[in-house]
Design a binder for these strands. Structure first.
Lengths: 160, 160
DNA sequence: ACGCTACGTTCATCTGGCGTACTTAGCCAA
DNA sequence: TTGGCTAAGTACGCCAGATGAACGTAGCGT
């Protein structure tokens, strides 16, 4: 039985891709997470750098805090009242592979002649870093055919 | 100089994440690519499985063909006229790490008790597969501190 | 000539994004 | 104690795009 055939019998709404996309799958959220990952934590600089409407930014921040990907932390700048900034939680930091994957695709296919805007190096050995599929026995998968998907324990079959 | 400081001096619109998100960064596009990756290539099953409005689906397909991620290929079912289906190009298939990253996050943080809906195995050795950051010297990066970002050749400094 | 099917298209409605302007809460200085 | 200042939101009118249902269409076999 081919994977496509098996796939067609599975409920498409029971899917980790769909769940993650429902959580963070819009333009501003990705860019917002990019900024927070790079240490930009406050409303004003976030708004300036993203160019997002303030209302949208506020809504996204509230949603991410609510979902536990960011946490609101108080801070106090000299001569100012206490305000709040947004910090990545572990739950939020775990989205980093998604950002790296998006970045890697952009570098591969959407870069200008000048090259990639950001490079990732391995601290220590200094070599370029890329995303790869690795199995539990530490084999690095190369081709499409090395990957065998199968229904997991959480899969649900379609009723029809 | 900290990375955050350097990051703040870079033009946030010159970014591979932003470019990729502009290309494929909406809910239906991700789910559509998921289906095509799993071998669902035709309009009618795509529409049924996704539940997307037909107009949206048609628009997304046209856009992805236009961008070279999908190609329209003729087919002919017995007793039917020639129609077209949508196949992943290499350019489209290269987005797979993004889908895997989204799926992995969903498995980690959004799965029900039953477990992941889909498992990825290494064909041959049979072990579970996951995404990892690997450097050109084949070191697998573990912690956050192993990763050193720096401005790339395509970076642009902010005017101000 | 006619119905059938897969693939879209149209249309009315409504949600949510957008840009701009405004509000708020506390700190400091006068 | 008044008043200005700043970061962080909120309010609002407008419009692009999503939505769901109905309709259009191009060729196949009968």
């Amino acid at each position: 039985m081919t994977w496509t055939q098996e796939w067609l019998e599975l409920d498409p709404t029971v899917c980790s891709v769909a769940r993650t996309v429902a959580l963070v799958g819009d333009k501003w959220t990705f860019l917002l997470l990019r900024e927070v990952n790079n240490g930009v934590r406050r409303f004003e600089p976030l708004q300036r750098r993203l160019g997002a409407p303030r209302a949208v930014l506020a809504a996204r921040l509230a949603h991410l805090v609510d979902a536990g990907l960011l946490e609101r932390a108080p801070y106090r700048e000299a001569g100012q009242r206490t305000r709040f900034e947004y910090r990545l939680t572990q739950r939020g930091a775990d989205l980093r592979p998604v950002l790296v994957a998006l970045m890697q695709y952009g570098d591969q296919h959407l870069a200008e002649d000048a090259g990639p805007p950001v490079e990732l190096r391995h601290r220590g050995c200094g070599a370029d870093v890329h995303l790869a599929l690795v199995c539990a026995n530490a084999h690095v998968l190369s081709g499409r055919d090395d990957l065998a998907p199968r229904p997991g324990s959480g899969a649900r079959r379609l009723a029809s």
